Computed example of a mutant assay.
Amino acid sequence: MAESIYIPEAATKSEKYEAILPQIEALISSEKDTYANLANVAAVLKEGFGFFWVGFYLVKGSELVLGPFQGPLACTRIRKGKGVCGTAWEKGFTQLVPDVEAFPGHIACSSASKSEIVVPGFFKDEVWIVLDVDSDQLDDFDQEDQVYLEKMMNMLDRHCAPDFTP
């Protein structure tokens, strides 16, 4: 079990992702509990990048239900197709939102959130989880974040999704 993660402080965003992704894979491949893995991944992303909010919503029936997260209080349940998270679940692809106020139907769990990226995870071709990352800055996420966060979600899909039971 890892007790610390090395995150290079004076590095570019790409260098940080390159440094933490193999460490995340090592961390989650040695732990079988999905919730423990999600909690640690949220902590690594929050600490490594200083994001305003990082967390997971898990598909449970007709709703996304709040899972492990780092940051202020969050919405507990989100319906399919509602807000950025529900849209990522419904459409099955990453939602990159430079200004949450401009997103139709945005759910304001926190008025401090200004931009957002939501990445779905898949098990047997079905979305089982979404990663939600919020920033208190406008236009804080880009294609680089999308590429690396999608790689990270693929790791979670391989190591955690088979344990998932709705």
Rank of each mutant, 00 (worst) to 15 (best):
61 G>Y: 12
7 I>G: 04
54 V>Q: 00
46 K>A: 13
116 E>S: 03
6 Y>R: 15
31 E>K: 14
97 V>G: 09
152 M>A: 04
5 I>G: 12
158 R>Y: 15
96 L>T: 01
137 Q>D: 15
7 I>Y: 05
100 V>M: 05
152 M>T: 09
34 T>Y: 11
9 E>V: 10
95 Q>M: 07
164 F>L: 06
103 F>A: 10
151 K>P: 01
134 D>N: 07
3 E>I: 14
138 L>M: 06
15 E>Q: 12
66 L>M: 04
93 F>S: 06
67 G>T: 05
149 L>Q: 01
156 L>T: 00
69 F>Q: 11
94 T>H: 01
116 E>T: 01
142 D>I: 00
63 E>P: 09
33 D>M: 03
133 V>C: 14
124 K>R: 12
163 D>M: 14
112 A>V: 15
53 W>E: 02
158 R>W: 13
161 A>V: 05
12 T>F: 13
39 A>Y: 10
147 V>L: 12
136 D>F: 01
58 L>E: 05
13 K>G: 05
93 F>G: 00
35 Y>E: 15
16 K>I: 05
90 E>F: 11
157 D>I: 04
4 S>A: 12
116 E>H: 09
89 W>C: 00
50 G>E: 09
55 G>K: 11
163 D>F: 15
161 A>F: 04
138 L>Y: 13
101 E>P: 02
44 V>A: 04
30 S>L: 08
144 E>L: 14
130 V>T: 05
119 V>Q: 02
128 W>F: 13
84 V>Y: 09
78 I>N: 01
67 G>H: 01
38 L>Q: 10
22 P>R: 12
